[in-house]
Amino acid sequence: MLPFDFDYYRPKNLQEAVELYRHLRQSGRQPMYISGATELITLGRIDLVFTDAVIDIKDIPECREIGFDGDYLVLGSALTLTAIEEANLFPLLTKTSSEIADHTARGKITLGGNICGQIFYREAVLPFLLADSQAVIIGPEGVKVHYIDELFQKTLQLGNGEFLVQLATDKRHVDVPFISIKRRQQWETGYPLITAAALKIGGEIRVAISGLCPFPFRSNQMEAAINRDGLSVENRVSAALTVLPEPILNDIEGSADYRLFVLQNLLNDILAELDGINS
């Protein structure tokens, strides 16, 4: 039960949602777009999220699209992670997604909700960062399309009244060699420590990381280091560890030193898996 009240709207199309948001803001309200509502409920319960007007986008057809359209795989932001896993159109996304929360919760958590959430893991964004996907957003100024690595700077950079509608991924990038590894503090069901996802495209290994810093990231400098010719695996991994973004998380789930130790092993595992594969 949430300790505050809100009105609830379920628009049927994109324009209605954007117009609702604009109208509510003009009326002095604090509207919020939701799709899975899990973060509204779990963080609202402890007063870390507040809204007095919920705009639920899960019935908007564009936000539920799933499938190939021309040269692109299109995935709507309101699709549940379970729906994406069951369809299994983007194997790296299926694997990365299947490690988020638990199976039942993934039937409620949505793609857009995970990517736009407040928690710092947000692992669902990793495959899209790696595959140079494009994000379709809508807001008061209409529809915009951005490469996600431009739009995702620690968080998805959405303007006032904007929301994520779809992610479009070049179909040549969805079926390439990949690996996704999640390391937890304890066993297989503990809280996440670090997730590393990797793709190999055009002979180059791409790596994106969640849980090392307070934000998911893909780093060109790291990738340059791990793809450097003529160096041993050990030296390539060592070089990658010198160009990490900051800060490194240092909390009850894992100290900064321990996270770096885990990352070093993850990078070794990724290179062992993908180094010898042609792409």
Binding site: Y8, A37, T38, I41, T42, D102, A105, G107, K108
Partner: peptide, 25 residues
């Protein structure tokens, strides 16, 4: 009441759902 334990699981359209993670509406 946080979507972690599963004690409140029901079925919604045949799928498992943690009823603490779903608004009644």
């Amino acid at each position: 009441l946080n979507g972690d334990c599963g004690a409140c699981t029901v079925n919604v359209d045949g799928w498992p759902m943690k009823s603490c993670l779903m608004l009644a509406v």
